[in-house]
Simulated assay, not measured.
Amino acid sequence: MTALSIPSPSEGVWHLGPFPVRAYALCIIAGIVAAVWLAERRWVRRGGKPGAIQDIALWAVPFGIVGGRLYHVITDPELYFGAGRRPIEALYIWNGGLGIWGAIALGALGAWIGARRVGAPFGEIAAVLAPAIPLAQAIGRWGNWWNQELFGRPTQLPWGLQISPDERPDGYENVATFHPTFLYESLWDVGVVGLVLWIEARFKITGGRLFAVYVMGYTAGRGWIEYLRIDTVNHVLGLRLNVWTSIIVFTAAAAYFVLATRRAKASGAELEAEVTDPVHD
């Protein structure tokens, strides 16, 4: 163990009588609350009806949680099914295991349903959520710290993360400190929040394009952070599945951003032409 390192919590569950209070769940809830708060402020500042974001969250949040868990279980089925496994544990979301890709996909569906119900344009909802979602992720990632999970390779750096002997994976029993990938991703997500807000203010980008900026920013960081992790996961062509997912999602978001920007410029040029050179009957 290095002289300087980050300690891990001795426990992440407290009991209030018969009821367990889990730090992982508290981090997820805190992230959701922060995201709704920021998105609501942004929506009202744009002239939206107060309370609309909370109404949309009632759809987006449960859809996102279900989607996140489904992605995790589908991509790592060996953790829950097969000899010696307990399939019922696929439902134990409090033990960790929410895939961001599934959470975003189904969460977006829930947000779309919610937006339709409150009569809000989905593109503008996506824009106000663009910095709010990485804020939620930045806070929620601390749940992994409490659970002592999803850490990276061994390291002797001063900010190495101490992992309890019983939480170390096979082959690393004698290693005390690991890369705190939860911290790397949390800090990266905070940076993405700042990036989205800066691009929005500097270039006046909104709608789906602003959401694409968030997606590109997040996946760019998730790719290299994922590469550091040593938890058991499926590989495709030598790369972790989530690295491939990051590459594919980044490419899709970048393509959408480019095409949407071209359409926006074309529409602006057409509008300018109509104003400066009107056609008279």
Rank of each mutant, 00 (worst) to 15 (best):
P180M: 06
I163Y: 11
W188Y: 10
Q162K: 10
S246N: 13
G47P: 02
A132H: 02
S5T: 04
L135M: 12
A103G: 15
I113M: 12
S267L: 13
F250V: 06
V66S: 03
A57P: 10
L259C: 04
G17C: 07
F257I: 04
P154K: 07
F151Y: 15
W142A: 10
Q162M: 11
A201D: 12
W142C: 07
P158D: 09
I205V: 15
F211K: 00
G31M: 05
E274R: 13
L26C: 14
E270F: 03
L70P: 01
C27L: 03
D166V: 06
V128A: 04
K204T: 08
G268R: 11
L129A: 14
S246I: 02
D170Q: 13
R168E: 09
G31Y: 00
R41A: 05
T245W: 09
F211E: 01
A25G: 14
S5K: 13
I32P: 00
Y256E: 03
S8I: 08
T155C: 06
P87C: 09
P7T: 06
H179F: 05
A176V: 13
G51C: 02
I93E: 01
A90N: 06
E78C: 00
T261Q: 12
A57R: 02
V196W: 00
R209I: 06
G140K: 07
I104T: 06
Y71E: 11
F203H: 14
P134C: 11
R85F: 04
T181G: 10
R22L: 09
D170I: 11
E274C: 00
R229I: 11
Q162R: 14
L129S: 08
G207M: 05
L91I: 02
R116P: 00
I225F: 00
L58H: 03
N174F: 11
W94T: 10
A39M: 03
T206G: 07
L98V: 02
V236R: 04
F178Y: 08
L241V: 14
W14H: 09
E270I: 07
N174S: 15
A220W: 11
L187Q: 06
E78R: 12
I100Y: 08
I248F: 11
Q137V: 03
W94L: 10
W145R: 09
L271N: 07
R222V: 13
A25P: 05
G107K: 00
D281R: 12
M1N: 06
R240V: 11
E40M: 00
A255L: 14
D170N: 07
V243R: 01
Y218F: 14
P154Q: 11
F122K: 01
G82Y: 13
L161Q: 15
G12S: 15
I53H: 11
V258T: 04
E11H: 14
L228D: 11
W145A: 08
V279P: 01
L58D: 03
E11M: 08
P131G: 10
D189A: 14
F81Y: 13
P154C: 09
T219F: 07
T75N: 12
A103V: 02
R141P: 05
